[in-house]
Amino acid sequence: MARSTKINTYLFWTLQIVGWGFLTIANVWSKMYLVPAEKVKPNYFLVEGFIFITLGIGLTSLLRNYLKRIDFIANQNQKSYIKVFLAFGIVSWLFSGILIAGAHYSFLYIHNKPNDFSALEIFSTIINIAVFIFFWILFYVGIKSLERLRKNKIDRLKLETELKDSQLNTLKGQLNPHFMFNSLNNIRGLMLEDVDKARDMLTRLSEMLRYSLNMNKVDAIPIAQELEIVDNYIALSKIQLEDRLVYEQDIKQDLTQIKIPPMVLQMLIENAIKHGVSNQKNGGKITLIVTDDNNKIILQVNNTGTLKTETDSTRIGLNNIKKRLELLYGNDATFTLKEVENEVQATIEIPVS
């Protein structure tokens, strides 16, 4: 912020000096060229030019401070327009009056005689100064307005990025708390039957917890890493479902290092168990398929069961997946859920980056 302010200040003074300097040089040169030296001494025009550039830079700098004080760029309303119009009139009259008075006394000092300005010369001077100040205001307001638009655009993009990151961090890496409680209760019961297996299940549960917490730091992980978490989830689910849950994989091995959003496969498996297999009296089978087609990774989970109208509470995981895919890939990724021959198929297609 401080660097930006410093650059803006440097740019303002550069434009001030260059702009008023150009007008001064043009004015002095034209008068020296058009007015004979025997009539008006050249050094008079230099003095007049010095007064002109000093007033131009000084008064418009004060005008700039006033525009900043009333915050005209951000608050362009009827009241502020009236204030700027009055400031424009005051600066124009001050500029014209001081310039005419300074030119009069400079001419008197250099030539030892007064220079009686005609009414036309005075009027044209006032009009010229008013035009200069008017265009100075237009130029300044135009630049500051463009700068404000650019800043607003940058701020909006930053806000959108921060919001997107916040949404992703909220959505990804979340384990269902009911699954956690059920797993802990199942492991507690398992300890009475098989301590070694219970210890192994605790290790798998802790790995899933650590994985879930660490996922806030990344947007994509290798499929192989996600498959490890899926295996842990299946193992923990089997404590309760036992032989009622049959799990199979059909993984194209050369795709295991392709990166995908974390937790999406785990959420598909969770949905298939919770709303498919666990609702079947005799259980069922879940098949995880990972393949590719036309530069897209296809992640598919099939489960025994039918596609029913879900309540709001049961669609949290699926909506989570849809929202994350939308935030990460826009319209380039798809998520479909359909029923085919007594099986529910959940399919995600992700472009290969």
Results as ranks from 00 to 15, higher is better:
Met1Ala: 14
Ser4Lys: 15
Thr5Trp: 09
Ile7Cys: 04
Tyr10Glu: 06
Leu11Ser: 06
Leu15Gln: 04
Leu15Tyr: 11
Phe22Tyr: 10
Leu23Arg: 00
Leu23Pro: 00
Ile25Tyr: 13
Trp29Gly: 01
Ser30Ile: 13
Ser30Leu: 12
Ser30His: 08
Leu34Gln: 09
Pro36Cys: 07
Lys41Gly: 05
Pro42Phe: 12
Asn43Val: 10
Gly49Glu: 04
Gly56Gln: 10
Leu63Ala: 11
Arg64His: 14
Leu67Val: 05
Lys68Asp: 14
Lys68Glu: 14
Asp71Val: 01
Asn75Ala: 02
Asn77Lys: 07
Asn77His: 11
Asn77Met: 06
Gln78Lys: 09
Lys83Gly: 02
Val84Ala: 03
Phe85Asn: 03
Leu86Gly: 02
Phe88Leu: 15
Ala103Cys: 04
Ser106Tyr: 01
Leu108Cys: 02
Tyr109Thr: 03
Tyr109Asn: 00
His111Tyr: 08
His111Phe: 09
Asn112Pro: 00
Lys113His: 11
Ser118Tyr: 06
Ser124Phe: 10
Ser124His: 07
Ile126Lys: 09
Ile127Gln: 04
Asn128Phe: 14
Phe132Glu: 03
Ile137Cys: 04
Ile137Met: 06
Ile143Leu: 14
Ser145Tyr: 09
Arg148Ile: 01
Leu149Gln: 13
Asn152Phe: 02
Ile154Met: 07
Asp155Glu: 15
Arg156Thr: 11
Lys158Gly: 02
Glu160Asp: 14
Thr161Ala: 15
Asn169Phe: 00
Leu171Ala: 06
Lys172Tyr: 08
Gly173Arg: 07
Gly173Phe: 08
His178Pro: 05
Phe179Asp: 02
Phe179Tyr: 09
Asn182Thr: 05
Asn186Asp: 15
Ile187Lys: 06
Arg188Tyr: 15
Leu192His: 13
Glu193Asn: 09
Leu202His: 02
Thr203Val: 13
Ser206Val: 07
Leu209Tyr: 15
Tyr211Pro: 00
Tyr211Glu: 07
Ser212Pro: 09
Met215Asp: 12
Lys217Arg: 15
Ile221Ala: 05
Ile221Leu: 13
Ala224Trp: 03
Gln225Pro: 00
Ile229Asp: 04
Ile229Pro: 00
Val230Lys: 01
Val230Gln: 06
Tyr233His: 11
Tyr233Glu: 06
Leu236Thr: 04
Glu242Met: 12
Arg244Thr: 07
Val246Leu: 11
Tyr247Met: 11
Ile251Cys: 08
Gln253Pro: 00
Pro261Arg: 09
Pro261Asn: 08
Met263Asn: 08
Leu265His: 05
Gln266Gly: 05
Gln266Asp: 04
Ile269Gly: 03
Ile273Ser: 06
Gly276Cys: 08
Asn279Leu: 15
Asn279Ser: 09
Lys281Cys: 01
Lys281Asn: 10
Asn282Gln: 14
Gly284Phe: 06
Lys285Gly: 00
Leu288Asn: 10
Thr291Glu: 13
Asn294Arg: 11
Asn295Ala: 11
Lys296Ile: 02
Lys296Gly: 03
Ile297Trp: 04
Gln300Met: 12
Leu307Ala: 10
Ser313Thr: 13
Arg315Ile: 09
Leu318Trp: 03
Asn319Ser: 10
Asn320Arg: 09
Lys322Cys: 00
Arg324Glu: 12
Leu325Pro: 05
Leu325Phe: 06
Glu326Phe: 13
Tyr329Met: 05
Tyr329Gln: 03
Gly330His: 03
Gly330Trp: 04
Ala333Asn: 08
Leu337Phe: 01
Lys338Asn: 12
Glu339Gln: 15
Val340Gly: 00
Glu341Cys: 05
Gln345Arg: 10
Ala346Asn: 09
Ser353Phe: 10
